[in-house]
């Protein structure tokens, strides 16, 4: 990446960060509030009465999943909304007429998505800490790697959604009908042992299950250790999605007729 491309990349990232903080009540606050409510209602009130065959309490058990859910929602939402917004207002043309390469454009938006994921993860972790999740960091390196990989993965999915979307309904369709069900059924609130065998089997086809499970294991060493599986397969998916995005930016009529 030459100096001009680097400057263009930094400009997109700066613009994205300014946007995140300019509309912080839409980008940062909602996850803090929903996580607080989940922790209070499920963690404190209901969770204390649930039988959990784990060495951690229920509040600790759900905290990693809640952090990752916030990361997934925000990384995805940032790139899809920001990129589609730029397409809708046609301000994307500012980037398309400039000398920057498609790689710079994609990486700039992805970094914006990852940064929002990281900001929200930090805030949600603080909430978890203060509400009493007593969050541990058993494997900080792996926790960070998984968090970044997951954030990047969903930022890429969001970018693809924003790229292909034709109206605002298309932006809401994937999160409502795919992302939310997969996340909720990914084992944030329950342990696999609590499910009937058929449901357990089905859950193993849900990619979000492995992400949550790995992140939980990296933080509190509870549940199934799927770190290596996530660490190996997620980069493969990331590479695939990245090149799909690059191809679409270069060749499809989504941006250039």
């Amino acid at each position: 990446m030459d100096r001009g491309e680097r400057t263009a990349y930094v400009t997109i990232v700066r613009k994205e960060v300014v946007r995140i903080f300019r509309i912080w009540s839409q980008t940062l606050l909602p996850s803090v509030i929903t996580t607080s409510l989940y922790l209070l209602v499920f963690g404190k009130l209901i969770g204390s009465r649930l039988p959990l065959e784990q060495k951690v309490n229920y509040l600790q058990f759900i905290s990693p999943g809640l952090i990752l859910m916030a990361v997934i929602t925000n990384s995805y939402g940032n790139t899809s909304a920001s990129f589609f917004g730029a397409k809708f207002s046609r301000s994307i043309e500012e980037l398309l007429v400039s000398p920057m390469s498609s790689h710079t454009l994609i990486l700039g938006y992805l970094t914006g998505g990852v940064l929002r994921g990281v900001f929200v993860a930090t805030l949600v972790s603080l909430v978890t800490y203060f509400i009493g999740g007593n969050l541990e960091l058993r494997h900080p390196f792996w926790a960070l790697v998984i968090l970044l990989e997951v954030s990047l993965f969903f930022a890429l999915l969001g970018f693809l959604n924003g790229l292909l979307a034709k109206d605002f309904d298309d932006i809401n369709f994937i999160p409502t009908f795919f992302l939310t069900p997969l996340t909720y059924l990914g084992g944030i609130f329950y342990s696999m042992d609590m499910l009937p065998p058929w449901w357990q089997l089905l859950s193993h086809f849900n990619p979000v299950y492995y992400m949550i499970s790995s992140f939980r294991y990296a933080l509190i060493e509870a549940g199934e250790d799927t770190i290596m599986l996530t660490f190996i397969f997620l980069p493969l998916l990331l590479t695939l999605l990245y090149f799909a995005s690059y191809y679409l930016v270069q060749k499809s009529s989504a941006l250039r007729h």
Binding site: V10, T11, E94, P99, M100
Partner: peptide, 13 residues
């Protein structure tokens, strides 16, 4: 808006 455009063309901040 204007400064960002300059950034896309490779001008430092």
């Amino acid at each position: 808006i204007v400064a960002n455009q300059a950034g896309y063309y490779g001008l430092s901040y």
